[in-house]
Design a protein around this nucleic acid. Structure first.
Length: 658
RNA sequence: GCCGACUUAGCUCAGCUGGUAGAGCGACUGAUUCGUAAUCAGUAGGUCGCCGGUUCAAGUCCGGCAGUCGGCUCCA
């Protein structure tokens, strides 16, 4: 049914009708499939959707929310979270309820509910199947979700009599006089909740409970620790299966598994958590990426600098990091000859680059200065947060700081945008941009004059627009020291990762009092831009491993080809081919073990080597190699020189596919 | 840092309520000389994460520490 037909029928419908009955008059089939309804007051759409049991007032009408409607999944999963709570209360009476929202596009699941068991009891993973089974029982019984409205006082009394202190806390914080609650027929479950919900548990079709995790009440570390049960729900079993398949795919790509498997990197207990060892294969890939960046940066007028890994604490006191950033700094080291001197491992590169800028007088003619450094920094992340390469304690940023005049800013942003685009394309990432600007009115929380803020925000927005980059404008997301553009890339399995950031900084130039002499022969404060494209090599590498599932494109692959002699009768020819290709500048090896060709191919395939070059009787005689592509399989024999030329093209064009 | 789980051979894992370690793969050696994802046989390899405790006896029970995993929190 289309929407205009519905609107045609609106007039004349009296109030007092249930939403579901209204829908039935429109379209019986849709009414049957609906899980909730979109409410219109006159022509104006209400902010919140309503239950099917909602009583329409005069002048109101509803449209069905069907499983395929954009708002449907959230309602559905929210209802499933409540079903979880009902099952838990059924099985474990007295359990206190926290909150139970839906999640969308979250790898952790589709919903969760926070619980606190009585007498310090805890859920264990073995409880999940029991709870899930009870949920299915409740689904089978098709029990009604009932909405009850009451006064705040009434609700508080009700929940406090049930010993639901956390719910009482939520209710007392809520504005307004009345609150709504939901029950599920035939269960002890009552929840303080805005709704809406599916009409009955039978509407819920495909569910799975996933994991148990710790969570603090209201996310506050000082509040009680609860147990969170994650689960997910879909309208059909097929969608659930697909989601599980996706999750398994993500697990197959996990860089923490592939890294050691492909001998790319490791961690060592002897060194400590979050400190990365780059093995030859990983280091080679990193070197290739660095070389790629080097060329692009020099071409764009950047200068490379090197700065120390430790510094007197004073530097970070001036920058303000010591104060605002203290808990992630490694502890200070005292100078053994002078107890008043403290040194710190550096958590950021910017103050060092400012020292270089400030090492001599600068004229407006010297600007812009663009200092680039692959700067290794150390941040003492809390022990619970480390996550392979994605969250490490020591990592190397592809950092750069641009010092420029206000009227150069926009042009510098252009330069950054172009570089970001070039680099993301090279790795095969789609990406999106976010522009973070000041709060519309609360100007006092920011540093720097209105004038420079306006100029900077306008420069960033115009640069994005003029480059034709669509972006989301994020009000109130700017840091106190300046506006910024963040970039998120989308990987091969549609996950997004925040990588690049371009930040304007009015703060550090002021704190360090850096200047340039303008054409007016007066001192001026330069604008500083922080910018990282990959973020950190460690994290970027982790993302790349997962993006490519370990199968790096030819230009990055640690081994680009491996020569496989059919038997050791052809080992010599194999070695000759290997040598020739190495001489041509490629990374090639040969497998001269006494294995059968099938085994050699299998091993090369597992190592994700892009090309396997098989040499047997025929090839040895003809001076060819039989090329096996890791994706396409056997592609036939070609002369070695022809293969070499093809490889050269693939590498120099940084081809993503063969 | 907090909650929970985990740590046994290079890897993946088995080892019941305490009686003193086992498989597959890999590695090594030998045989095989083979045409597009695993040839066969033999051999070696473990202070059961580390430290301490209980016990006649600890991979197994208890405590501490480290690391890993799932979350929370953090990421000005």
């Amino acid at each position: 049914m289309n929407e205009s037909q519905q609107s045609d029928n609106v007039s004349g419908i009296a109030g007092g009708l249930k939403a579901v009955d209204y829908l039935k008059r429109q379209d019986r089939e849709a009414a049957k499939r609906a899980i909730a309804a979109r409410l219109y007051v006159g022509e104006v759409k209400a902010e919140e959707p309503v239950d099917l049991g909602y009583l329409l007032s005069e002048g109101e009408r509803v449209e069905p929310i069907l499983p395929e409607s954009p708002e449907a999944l959230e309602i559905y999963r929210h209802s499933t979270a409540h079903l979880l709570a009902a099952a838990v209360l059924d099985l474990y009476p007295g359990t206190k309820l926290g909150i139970g929202p839906a999640l969308l596009n979250d790898p952790k699941g589709g919903f969760y509910y926070d619980f606190q068991r009585v007498d310090g009891a805890r859920f264990t993973p073995e409880d999940l199947p029991k709870i899930e089974k009870r949920m299915r029982d409740l689904m089978k019984r098709n029990l009604e979700y009932r909405r009850v409205e009451m006064s705040k006082a009434e609700a508080e009394e009700k929940f406090s009599s049930m010993n639901e202190s956390l719910k009482c806390e939520l209710i007392s914080e809520k504005g307004g006089e009345t609150v709504s609650c939901y029950t599920i027929e035939g269960t002890p479950f009552v929840d303080f909740c805005l709704g809406p919900h599916v009409p009955s548990t039978g509407k819920i079709k495909a569910i799975r409970l996933l994991s148990i995790a710790g969570a603090h009440w209201k996310g506050d570390e000082k509040r009680e620790q609860m147990q969170r049960i994650y689960g997910t729900a879909f309208f059909t079993q097929e969608e659930l299966d697909e989601w599980v398949r996706q999750k398994e795919e993500a697990e197959r790509r996990d860089h923490r598994r592939l890294g050691p498997e492909l001998d790319l990197f490791s961690f060592s207990e002897a060194i400590g958590a979050g400190l990365v060892l780059w093995h030859p294969n990983g280091a080679l890939i990193r070197k290739v990426i660095e070389q790629f960046l080097n060329d692009e940066l020099y071409r764009r007028g950047y200068s490379f600098v090197y700065t120390p890994h430790v510094t007197q604490s004073e530097l970070f006191r001036i920058s303000g990091h010591l104060e605002h950033y203290q808990d992630v700094l490694y502890p200070g080291m005292t100078d053994s000859e002078n107890e008043d001197l403290q040194y710190r491992l550096k958590p950021m590169n910017c103050p060092f680059h400012i020292q270089i800028y400030g090492s001599r007088q600068r004229s407006y003619r010297d600007l812009p200065q663009r200092y680039a450094e692959y700067g290794t920094v150390y941040r003492y992340e809390r022990s619970g947060v480390s996550h392979g390469l994605m969250r490490a304690r020591g990592f190397t940023q592809d950092d750069a700081h641009i010092f420029c005049t206000p009227d150069q800013l926009k042009n510098e942003i252009f330069g950054c945008l172009d570089l970001v685009d070039l680099i993301f394309r090279a790795f095969g990432f789609e990406y999106k941009a976010e522009l973070s600007v000041r709060h519309a009115t609360e100007r006092e929380k920011y540093l720097g004059s209105d004038e420079v803020w306006d100029l900077a925000e306008r420069a960033l927005a115009e640069a994005l627009t003029e480059r034709g980059l669509p972006f989301v404008r994020m009000e109130d997301e700017a840091a106190f020291y300046g506006p910024k553009i963040d970039f998120k890339v989308v990987d091969a399995i549609k996950r997004t990762w925040q990588l690049s950031t371009i930040q304007v900084d009015f703060n550090l130039p002021q704190r360090f009092e850096i200047e340039y002499v303008g054409s007016d022969n007066k001192p001026h404060r330069p604008i500083m831009v922080h910018r990282a494209i990959l973020g950190s090599f460690e994290r970027f590498f982790g993302i790349l491993v997962e993006h490519y599932a370990g199968a790096f494109p030819i230009w990055l692959a640690p081994l680009q080809a491996i020569v496989l002699p059919i038997s050791d009768r052809f080992n010599q020819q194999a070695e000759a081919v290997e040598q020739q290709l190495r001489a041509d500048g490629f990374r090639v090896d040969s497998d001269r073990r006494g294995e059968k060709i099938g085994a050699k191919i299998r091993d090369a395939q597992l190592r994700k080597i892009p090309f396997m070059l098989v040499i047997g009787e025929r090839e040895a005689e003809a001076g060819t190699v039989a090329v096996r592509d890791r994706v396409k399989g056997d592609t036939g024999a070609v002369p070695v020189s022809e293969f070499s030329a093809r490889l050269r093209d693939l590498v120099s064009s940084r081809a993503l596919r063969t």
